[in-house]
Amino acid sequence: MPPVIELIICAFLLLGGIFVLLGSFGLLRLPDFFTRLHAPTKATTLGLAGLLIGSMIYFFAVEQRLVVHELLITLFLLITAPVSAHMLAKAALHQKVRALKRTQGQALCNAVRKRQPPPADN
């Protein structure tokens, strides 16, 4: 395997690993549920995409054949990540999980729970 390709693979893998780590770090560190929701759904998805692209290049370079499973997994994760984030946010709102005190627009929460339009003054 030529060293340039090896370098590219390493870069993708490292980038992916760092983003996965950042996603989990955010999950641990951010102050309330709704802010926590942001880190894993995005950073982790992007991190995994990096890992998958890296491994795709590796198998393409080593085995000389296209392994496209990775593409399918990436696509699948890209489609499912927002759906599960949406469902989690919905579940949390209906469970009345408390948001951070300084969150703006908490007056909306009641309307959101009942799926009503926002109150008029907003």
Binding site: L13, G16, G17, V20, G23, S24, L27, F33, R36, L37, P40, T44, T45, G47, L48, L51, L52, S55, E70, I73, L77, S84, L88, A91, A92, Q95, V97
Partner: peptide, 22 residues
């Protein structure tokens, strides 16, 4: 809260996919 735990499980499985790939 419960949604926190579900979110943690969700992230856990995504990360384990990464580990398996590696």
């Amino acid at each position: 809260d419960l949604p926190d735990r579900i979110l943690a499980l969700d992230t856990l499985y995504i990360n384990s996919i990464g580990l398996i790939l590696l």
